[in-house]
Amino acid sequence: MHELGLMAEIVDKIEAVAKENNVTEIETLVLDVGEYSGVVPEYVEECYPAVIEGTLLEKTALKINVIPGKARCENCGTGFAVKGNENCCPRCGSQKCKVIEGGEFVIKEIVAR
């Protein structure tokens, strides 16, 4: 739901980075989107053409890496996939688990010249 606002923010940030690095052309923008980040990759792709219009990223391709959710049990230390385990450790059954991956929404890199 909030993808549009976030993407507009990202475009601003990239333009600043481009200026700092004397970039004239950005071929690709790479984002890491966690499965549990609250950001829907399809929505990001849908609003992307609208947010890049008239910016330095107008011809930039978008690449999204979806990062699967991973958790660690705070009781026995086991790492496991969030999907299918419902925040419950598959080894000891503890519910004291912390999501360690899959919550991120990160601008990974740009391919530019």
Binding site: V17, V106, V111, A112
Partner: peptide, 11 residues
């Protein structure tokens, strides 16, 4: 040539 500029910044 194109180069990769790492940003690694959380939105």
């Amino acid at each position: 040539a194109f180069r990769v500029i790492e940003i690694k910044q959380s939105v």
